[in-house]
Simulated assay, not measured.
Amino acid sequence: MKTAILIPCYNESKTIEKVVTDFKRVMPHADIYVYDNNSTDGTERIARDAGAIVRHEYKQGKGNVVRSMFRQITADCYILVDGDDTYPAEDAPEIERMILSGEADMVIGDRLSSTYFEENDRRFHNTGNRMVRKFINLFFKSDLKDIMTGMRGFNYNFVKSFPIQSKGFEIETEMSVFALINNFQIHEIPVDYRDRIEGSESKLNTFRHGYKVLVMIAALIRDERPLLFFTAISLILLVIAGIYFFPILFKYFSTGYVLKIPTLIVISTVVIIATVIFFTGVILHVLKRQHRDELEHHMILLNELKDE
């Protein structure tokens, strides 16, 4: 059984040596891969000197890095962890055990039930984590405790069937939703979280990346729950149409005259659009179900190829 430790890095020279050496100590049997994402501070050299296998991804963004990792590396267990030394290596063996035993397809390192809110004093980060968690759990009928953690474990089937669309930090949200939608077995385990050391700066911009995550959630709801998404839009349009239509209807009942003919034409157009949008959702819902069937077939083929 092969385990791969995947560490995406961008300018983490102050912490990457410790991250690599900690994982080499705790999991000496694992291959440790550091993917350098255009660092300018010597991260690549430090990681290589520490004993990691160093590769490069030149398209900027964590999503791009993870895509390359998943495409290029073959293993039975993958453990993805940030290179900023905020996640202790000591939690990795339990993640590995759950993946290799078949208990989980994806293991989430849950910071939010552990030390995250004590260690992280960035108020908007904390609020954003809670908000994203509520959105995901509401729309995808789940009870995940940490959506955006940077420490996760995956099995071979998850990694090789995950079509990554994200380019940046939205990748964590996309992973969680993909697992929920496609019925992968998910387990969460509490992991300790420690804030960055002095002099190590986060690459996460609270508002810019927060906006991207919210856009990603909306896109995922549209793509993964099309019937819900387009039905909601149809209902909003019908409510707007009703607000303008019923006063005209009541006036007709009281006077016998149809007033505001142009408004009625616009209302009729809105109702037609709402109907078209609803049936668009129905069609996409059927196509999505067919896609899930194809994914199941793909998973069977993956298992057959792996056995060979």
Rank of each mutant, 00 (worst) to 15 (best):
M1W: 00
A4F: 01
Y10V: 07
E12Q: 08
S13G: 02
F23V: 02
M27R: 02
H29L: 10
N37C: 04
N38T: 14
D41L: 07
D41F: 08
T43S: 01
A52C: 07
A52I: 04
H56E: 07
Q60T: 13
K62D: 00
V65N: 00
M69I: 03
F70Q: 00
I73T: 10
A75R: 06
V81I: 14
P88S: 04
I95Q: 00
V107Y: 02
G109E: 08
D110F: 08
R111L: 12
T115L: 09
T115H: 07
E118T: 14
E119R: 06
N120T: 04
N120Q: 12
R122W: 13
G128V: 04
N137H: 08
T149K: 04
M151Q: 12
N155T: 14
K167L: 11
K167P: 07
E174R: 05
V177E: 01
F178V: 03
A179Q: 05
N183V: 05
E188W: 01
D192L: 11
D195S: 11
R196A: 08
R196M: 14
N205C: 05
T206S: 01
L214G: 05
M216A: 09
A219M: 11
D223G: 13
T231N: 14
L237Y: 05
L238R: 13
Y244R: 13
F245H: 14
P247I: 00
K251T: 06
G256I: 11
Y257H: 12
I267F: 10
S268G: 15
V270A: 10
I273N: 04
I273F: 00
I273D: 03
I273C: 03
I277A: 11
F278N: 07
F279T: 03
L284Q: 11
L284V: 11
V286Q: 14
L295V: 11
I300P: 00
L302K: 03
L302Y: 03
L302N: 01
E304C: 00
